[in-house]
């Protein structure tokens, strides 16, 4: 499959340490996902689409990769140790590792601050959204 980003499914699988072939299509990840309605592609689709090599579509879907809460519900409730959240993370990393692709920049921060916002929120968002 031609890719706009030169990212292969093998790379995604390797970054994630996940083998999508373990999936048995039960859908429990997407049933558990608390961010389901925010995402275009859902946890089980990440598994199936990585298996099919449809990496570009996933990388282009901001509404999918930046709406995962990393809450690990899909990991916890998967009966086959597939760990869909790791695939979402790997796709997100493949995007933000591209030059100029940081989803959050220091310039964005002041507008986001409020007096109670814990440092943890900033640190976490930085880890998730930037390189």
């Amino acid at each position: 499959m031609a890719s706009n980003y030169d990212v292969t499914k093998e790379e995604i699988e390797e970054i994630a340490g996940v083998n999508p072939l373990r999936c048995m299509r039960c859908g429990r990840c997407s049933a558990a996902c608390p961010s389901f309605d925010n995402m275009k592609y859902h946890p089980h689709q990440f598994v199936a689409m990585v298996e099919n090599g449809e990496i570009d579509a996933l990388m282009e879907s901001e509404s999918s990769i930046y709406k995962c809460m990393s809450c690990m519900a899909c990991i916890e409730r998967c009966p086959r140790q597939v760990q869909p959240a790791r695939l979402i993370e790997a796709v997100r990393l493949a995007v933000v590792r591209k030059q100029g692709q940081n989803h959050l920049t220091p310039d964005d921060i002041p507008a986001l601050l409020d007096p109670d916002l814990p440092q943890q929120a900033l640190v976490s968002a930085y880890r998730k959204f930037t390189k």
Binding site: R25, C26, G27, R28, C29, S30, A31, A32, C33, F36, D37, H42, H44, Q45, A73, R77
Partner: peptide
């Protein structure tokens, strides 16, 4: 329904069990 249940939340007031499921054919939670 081809799919799964991800969470059941019992509600005391209504006595209902809120079942959060996923329908794989409709791709809907």
């Amino acid at each position: 329904i081809k799919g799964a249940v991800g969470k059941v939340t019992p509600h005391k007031e209504t006595g209902k069990l809120e079942v959060q499921g996923y329908d794989m054919i409709l791709n809907e939670q």
